[in-house]
Simulated assay, not measured.
Amino acid sequence: MHFLGELIIILIVTTLLGQLFARFNLPPVIGQLLSGIILGPAILSWVHPGNIISLFSEFGVILLMFLAGLESDLDLLKKYFNLSFTVAGIGVILPVIFMGTASLLFGMKFLEALFIGIVFAATSVSISVEVLKDANQLHTRAGSAILGAAVVDDILAVVVLSLFTTFSHEGGKSGLTNNFFLNLLIEVIYFGAVWLIYKFIAPYFMKAAEKLEVNYAVVIASLVLALTMAWVADFVGLSAVVGAFFGGLAIRQTPQYQEVNSSVSAIGYAIFIPVFFADIGLSMTFASFIKDIWFIIIMTILALVSKFWAGKYSSEIFGFSKNDANIVGAGMISRGEVALIVAQIGITHHLFPEDIYSSLILVIIVTTVLSPFILNHYLKNLSK
């Protein structure tokens, strides 16, 4: 029962630190991650990574990506498709080029450098949404551009991650067979099945579940669908988070999605998701901090610049004013939980050197913390 004691400590500290960061208008997720650093081997050594914590963490990341899919507004994406796709597309390409090239210059192998670029390709829009809400700018053209681009960003990041795990055998995932092209065909079939589930199966499945006289039948059905898609994704050689994300997208377009979102959020954020973020912190050490200081500084600058330029100059192409374009650029900077998820997948499957893991997490934290301050700066210019 030693695990129960560790779980109690994790839940208390993640909640308190999350609240502390929220009070200063900073992402609570950073407080949750710091709790793992404080409690783990890096500082207090009260909690250590273990099998049960890892299981809770794995389920937490699946729920987190399922919720990300549930919260992706495809109607908004359709309305601003050209703008959103341009901002997001360039916002994926620039970090991969900038961060990947820098990683090569720091002596990493090509596939390792490419994966580090992918880590910083996604955007966590939840932080920007809170800042935009406070400034009453969420439903402006700039706010809609950020929201739409974030949806595309997440989808592109998931697809790029899928392609990387398909083409790279570095992570020990060579697919269902030993034939690369057969594996690729199987994964294409999987995405075809995802489309069928999205278009036809999910609505009927959820409608049937609604008729059952069982408590939370709709929520159970949604989890069964998402977990099945995650399990099959992992089975065919993709990442389980890919299936969970598309499971969320499939449920999103059903009438029951709000009930599912509310219930799964309660399940996830009450226990499994805090454990996931704490588990990331448990894996960190500061042994190589001084040695990697230039890596941290340069990667932080590139992480900020790549997303900001992508959002800014893409928006200007569509006729945005200079300040509105700056708002879009600043709104795309935050990496947050999405980058943490990809980094965790990378370290689990040995897709980049373990000795830079802590430094990468630190870069993600710094860019995530700085993003609301940069966005606020440009929002204040609107009132001048």
Results as ranks from 00 to 15, higher is better:
289 F>W: 06
248 G>S: 12
188 V>W: 04
5 G>H: 05
174 S>N: 06
300 T>V: 07
326 N>I: 09
132 L>D: 01
254 T>Y: 09
335 R>S: 12
63 L>A: 07
160 V>Q: 06
213 E>L: 10
92 V>Y: 00
261 N>D: 14
274 P>L: 09
25 N>F: 14
127 I>M: 12
215 N>M: 04
299 M>C: 04
352 F>W: 14
23 R>H: 15
296 I>R: 11
46 W>P: 07
13 V>I: 14
34 L>Q: 08
291 K>T: 15
146 I>C: 04
342 V>F: 12
382 L>R: 15
276 F>C: 14
174 S>I: 14
347 I>L: 13
126 S>R: 01
129 V>A: 03
82 N>H: 00
31 G>Q: 04
359 S>P: 11
196 L>E: 02
113 A>H: 02
312 K>G: 01
45 S>Q: 09
372 P>K: 05
351 L>S: 01
33 L>C: 12
371 S>Q: 03
61 V>A: 08
229 M>C: 09
104 L>D: 01
130 E>S: 14
316 E>V: 03
170 E>S: 13
123 T>N: 07
244 A>V: 14
283 S>N: 15
341 I>E: 06
225 L>P: 15
272 F>N: 01
59 F>H: 05
274 P>Q: 08
151 V>C: 10
125 V>A: 03
157 A>N: 07
270 A>H: 08
22 A>M: 07
340 L>M: 15
259 E>R: 13
276 F>I: 13
32 Q>Y: 14
148 G>Y: 10
290 I>H: 02
65 M>T: 08
2 H>G: 04
59 F>R: 07
37 I>H: 00
190 Y>K: 03
143 G>I: 10
112 E>M: 01
331 G>Q: 01
146 I>L: 04
139 H>F: 11
352 F>I: 14
269 Y>C: 08
104 L>V: 03
242 V>R: 01
34 L>N: 04
71 E>V: 09
85 F>I: 10
114 L>F: 07
238 L>Q: 00
102 A>K: 02
333 I>M: 07
65 M>F: 08
57 S>Y: 05
239 S>D: 12
296 I>C: 14
61 V>N: 06
166 T>G: 02
179 N>T: 11
220 I>W: 10
169 H>G: 07
141 R>S: 11
338 V>T: 10
381 N>P: 00
186 I>S: 02
323 N>F: 06
11 L>I: 14
216 Y>R: 13
85 F>K: 00
26 L>T: 05
342 V>C: 11
371 S>G: 05
67 L>C: 06
51 N>M: 06
121 A>V: 01
50 G>L: 06
153 D>G: 14
131 V>L: 09
147 L>Q: 05
75 D>Y: 08
104 L>A: 02
240 A>T: 11
336 G>V: 02
220 I>N: 11
176 L>S: 03
77 L>Y: 03
178 N>I: 05
57 S>R: 05
338 V>N: 01
215 N>K: 09
157 A>K: 02
255 P>C: 06
9 I>P: 03
62 I>P: 09
132 L>M: 13
132 L>Y: 05
309 W>F: 13
28 P>D: 07
226 A>P: 00
153 D>T: 12
367 T>S: 15
36 G>E: 08
303 A>L: 05
218 V>H: 05
361 I>R: 03
301 I>A: 13
